[in-house]
Amino acid sequence: MALLHRATLRPSKLELLASWLPGRPWYQGPADADVVTRGSYRFDDPAGEVGLETILVGVADGPVHQVPLTYRGAPLDGADEWLVGTTDHAVLGPRWVYDGTADPVYAAVLAHAILGGAGQAEEYFEVDGRREPREQNMTIAGSGAGDAGMPVVGPVRRVVDGDAALIITDAVELVVVRRPVEGAVGAEGANLSGTWKGQPTAVPLAYARVR
């Protein structure tokens, strides 16, 4: 379960992404374009410390780009090159926003979502002491068989960024599809697929292979 706050972020997520995306090797679009959200989904951090949100963004009629983000209350050691930016959350205070491909918490929950078949987190707003469900704008599904034999993912050893971002850990190799499209040639292993408004047919979003 993801418990959200109706709070202002300065700068906003999309403002951070508009500045950060043009520097990525897999980004396709003008450097000064306004980015818009096509859909998003969240995972739960079992420890409840790190926010985990994947946003699908695009520009005008351009391709959809998949950007996993992690939100932390303090800097992540050794991850400066993966910092998307910092923002001030009206409730939680300063937040460090990272490209999730380099965050070990994201790697662990992504592996669980794919190999264990875990779905996305249910999202709620907390309003006056009660929880109000937030309507989800994406549906995702993992092809894994369940939790039996789930490996311990451990730290991220290496990230090879590109159209398909490769995340290497001791136990699992993960692939995040940066520009998910229907009919794309997939990687080996179990997969995470998703649908969103304008994309009613499920397309691969990520893959996992036990090493």
Rank of each mutant, 00 (worst) to 15 (best):
Gln28Thr: 11
Val36His: 01
Ile140Lys: 08
Ala148Phe: 12
Arg72Asn: 09
Gly100Cys: 11
Pro75Gly: 03
Gly154Ile: 10
Val57Ser: 00
Leu110Ser: 05
Val210Ala: 08
Ala184Asp: 06
Asp163Phe: 01
Ala107His: 14
Glu126Lys: 10
Gly51Asp: 02
Leu192Glu: 07
Ile55Asn: 00
Pro25Leu: 06
Val203Asp: 07
Asp128Leu: 13
Glu53Thr: 08
Glu49Met: 12
Asp103Cys: 06
Val160Cys: 10
Gly73Asp: 15
Ala141Trp: 01
Gly73Gln: 14
Leu110Phe: 14
Trp82Lys: 03
Pro25Asn: 02
Val67Thr: 10
Gly78Phe: 06
Pro22Ile: 03
Glu188Ser: 14
Pro104Arg: 10
Val59Asn: 01
Gly154Pro: 04
Gly146Phe: 09
Ser19Leu: 14
Asp99Gly: 00
Val50Tyr: 10
Gln199His: 11
Trp96Glu: 13
Val35Leu: 06
Arg38Pro: 01
Asp61Leu: 03
Leu3Gln: 11
Thr101Ala: 15
Ala2Ser: 15
Thr101Pro: 07
Arg95Pro: 14
Ala202Ser: 12
Leu115Pro: 04
Val177Asp: 05
Gln136Trp: 10
Pro180Ile: 09
Val97Asp: 11
Pro180Trp: 08
Pro200Val: 13
Leu17Trp: 08
Glu173Ser: 15
Ala7Met: 01
Ala107Phe: 14
Leu83Tyr: 12
Val177His: 03
Glu173Ile: 09
Ala202Cys: 05
Val127Met: 09
Gln66Cys: 03
Leu56Gln: 03
Leu56Ser: 01
Ile167Asp: 05
Leu174Gln: 02
Gly58Ala: 13
Ala184Met: 14
Gln120Met: 11
Ile168Glu: 15
Leu21Asn: 02
Leu115Lys: 04
His5Ser: 11
Asp80Cys: 02
Tyr98Glu: 04
Asp34Tyr: 02
Val105Pro: 03
Arg130Ile: 06
Thr195Pro: 06
Glu15Asp: 14
Leu3Asp: 09
Arg158Cys: 07
Thr169Ser: 12
Ala113Phe: 07
Thr70Cys: 04
Arg42Trp: 06
Val35Phe: 00
Gly119Tyr: 04
Arg24Gln: 02
Arg134Ala: 12
Ala102Cys: 14
Asn191Tyr: 13
Val57Asn: 04
Gly58Ile: 06
Glu123Asn: 11
Asp88Ile: 02
Gly117Tyr: 11
Ile140Phe: 05
Gly39Lys: 00
Arg158Ile: 09
Tyr207Asn: 01
Thr37Cys: 11
Tyr71Ile: 12
Ala31Gly: 15
Thr87Asn: 03
Gln199Trp: 08
Arg209Pro: 01
Met1Ile: 15
Glu132Tyr: 10
Ala206Gly: 07
Gly142Pro: 10
Gly93Tyr: 15
Leu205Lys: 07
Pro11Gln: 07
Arg42Ala: 12
Pro11Thr: 07
Leu21Ile: 08
Ala74His: 14
Val67Trp: 06
Leu17Arg: 02
Gly100Val: 07
Val50Asp: 14
Ala165Thr: 15
Pro151Trp: 08
Thr169Trp: 05
Ala7Glu: 06
Pro94Lys: 12
Asp88Asn: 05
Asp103Arg: 14
Ala121Trp: 09
Val159Phe: 09
Gln66His: 00
Lys197Cys: 00
Ala47Ile: 03
